[in-house]
Design a protein around this nucleic acid. Structure first.
Ligand SMILES: [Mn+2]
Ligand SMILES: [Mn+2]
Ligand SMILES: [Zn+2]
Ligand SMILES: [Zn+2]
Lengths: 163, 163
DNA sequence: TTTCCATTTGCAACTAGTTGCAAACAGGAG
DNA sequence: CTCCTGTTTGCAACTAGTTGCAAATGGAAA
């Protein structure tokens, strides 16, 4: 999959093909992981002298709107961007140890069906980051002592002992 | 549900009960909608002279960690906070017209089961904002002309016509 | 090829949220 | 009641991302 494949998507949607946009898309396309806006800027600047922060964010916003790129917030204080590829996937993030694993694209299929059928709503459920507890951390955090019955909190809270 | 009910949750988890924390929790508890950090600050300050920005964010982070409060990003540039109440709920947000409706708590039950059974992962799936298209906007946006087969984009993109 | 103008960029100022540190203080121990 | 110490606050400086506006430009039309 080469980035030039998508340049027509832009023009045909009535957007202009600027060198900034092309370089940004190329950098995301050449990477097979998640990149932050800053990482994208840095990689573009290696080849294309200067590039403004706003242009990067505005280009990313456009690519996301066109469905070319997926934004994801892994809870690290900055959003990451990844090429939208089929089949897509989701990420499972352990809140205690940080371990990240992947889940299949069809994970939300039943949710999507229910929303269509019962709520007449067409959801966009590509590429989520789902937070929770990995197998190991479920075990080690088993002795939760919540005040009420429900599964409140995520097990990340550790009882503090004085002295 | 009165906020004093939760003050023991704090102390018993080894956290200190400060006037700031109590006022912040009270304000969230008295509201039955979603409040931004700024709105919370403003409401607290009406009763409790001064209150620092950092204290608000740090208190909110704590309440979220303890499962007392749910944070939600509706895509408006600032996170909102709401008391965690049972039964909880999810929000369906139309990307085109902005219409918001609610969905039942059990929406993600099949996802939760699959993640537990097949991925040994215990997800936290309370209170999501799910973006997509409402019924009306699905109809009006039906004539999408995507370059490729899949459901790319969310219909928010409108074809521009020159002259 | 040149003209033209809506779109896009760069810039600077802004907002939301985070962080490191010193001073204040909650609350347990004596 | 007073002391003590780890926790929490206020503050100021910082990061990530947004916005309004003037200058630059992509690309359609002539
Ligand atoms: Mn991914
Ligand atoms: Mn809600
Ligand atoms: Zn883990
Ligand atoms: Zn709508």
């Amino acid at each position: 999959m080469h980035h030039t494949e998508f340049l027509d998507d832009l023009r045909q949607a009535g957007h202009r093909l600027t060198p900034q946009r092309e370089m940004i898309l190329q950098v995301i396309c050449e990477s097979d992981g998640h990149l932050t806006a800053d990482e994208i800027s840095a990689r573009v600047r290696k080849r294309y002298s200067y590039l403004n922060k706003s242009a990067v964010y505005r280009a990313l916003e456009l690519f996301v709107r066109l469905g070319l790129v997926n934004p994801t917030d892994f809870g690290q204080g900055r959003v990451t961007y990844e090429m939208h590829r089929d089949p897509h996937h989701h990420h499972l993030v352990c809140r205690r140890c940080g371990k990240m694993t992947q889940a299949d694209a069809d994970l939300f299929a039943p949710v999507e069906k229910k929303l269509r059928d019962e709520y007449a709503f067409l959801p966009a459920l590509d590429h989520f980051a789902i937070f929770g507890l990995c197998q190991k951390c479920q075990r080690s955090g088993a002795e939760r002592k919540g005040r009420r019955s429900g599964v409140r909190g995520s097990g990340a809270e550790v009882k503090k002992v004085y002295r």
